[in-house]
Design a binder for these strands. Structure first.
Lengths: 154, 154
DNA sequence: CAATTGAGTACCATTTTAGTCCTGTATAAA
DNA sequence: TTTATACAGGACTAAAATGGTACTCAATTG
């Protein structure tokens, strides 16, 4: 399925919610109500987003969460890695690739290229994009041309 | 992590192995030995690939598995969906999107676009690409320009 | 018919994921 | 300074997905 975890999904929804009123401070409970998701889980998600540096939190009365930087400077990749860790399709596409099968694998190299392409794609999608509920369909030129794959049969 | 499951990983490796000698018939046991992975699991993977129509199998002595069509006509997306089901980043990016939160979500539309872009990318990567162990670095023009995202802040 | 090899199914163990709860701490307002 | 608000952090549990195993059946070849 190559699917995002549910928490990541929540994170995106919540981030978008905050982004739509980026001046205000949002309490965890309010956000959970707004997006109709379980309070404790939303709370957990928010903490992860703070730890990743995407949100800033303020304690106490009138406290809450707000974006650490403009929505246009937060990428989908940022949100995903805040919750799930680095975006990598395979074990070995990570930095600390400790896959013992590299020898017999023979696919690692190319998976890494694919992985990189996806990461690039996700980095080019910003929270501002995601938060926009009425998407104007304008083509966005994505910097995918930069990836290279072997041209075995081309 | 947005990671492939281990089985999917196996599938890719095994498919690549078969693709490198696409004339021959490959017994499950031989393949498992070649790629150094647990026999029963490789076997399971192979069955899934057959069911998805990517491999053909022949029973009996001298039987085994072979590609159902040329490696250049099998995409990474094919392999992934054979094991994990349709490539979709979120519940709602699937056909039968039965997410009850569409109303409060407000992100669904744009995730679907991202999802589509990734699917397109994975469809453009063929088994022939993956199987090539000595990748010639040639830029591949991917048809990503076709996706559109909202241009909120552009 | 016997040997080989895939097909199908059921099952179990492990890991991951999601969700809950509790206690602590910072802040603001009264 | 007191009190209510709201985040921080961690421990814990339940549920689900994943990976791996075992066993029996079916087909093909010689």
């Amino acid at each position: 399925m190559l699917k995002l975890s549910r928490l990541t999904d929540y994170a995106a929804v919540v981030m978008a919610q905050i982004a739509r009123q980026s001046q205000a401070s949002h309490a965890a409970a309010d956000l959970a109500d707004a997006v109709q998701l379980p309070h404790p889980t939303v709370s957990k998600t928010l903490k992860m987003l703070v730890k990743a540096g995407l949100l800033e939190s303020q304690r106490g009365a009138q406290g809450g969460y707000r974006l650490a930087r403009p929505a246009s400077q937060i990428s989908a990749a940022d949100i995903i890695s805040a919750i799930e860790g680095p975006v990598a399709m395979t074990e070995c596409s990570q930095a600390e690739g400790d896959c013992e099968l590299v020898a017999t694998c023979g696919v690692a190299d190319n998976w890494q290229r694919v992985s990189l392409a996806i990461r690039t794609l996700l980095e080019s999608v910003t929270l501002a994009h995601l938060a926009d509920t009425t998407p104007i369909k304008l083509p966005v030129q994505l910097p995918i041309q930069s990836i290279s794959l072997s041209a075995a049969t081309a």
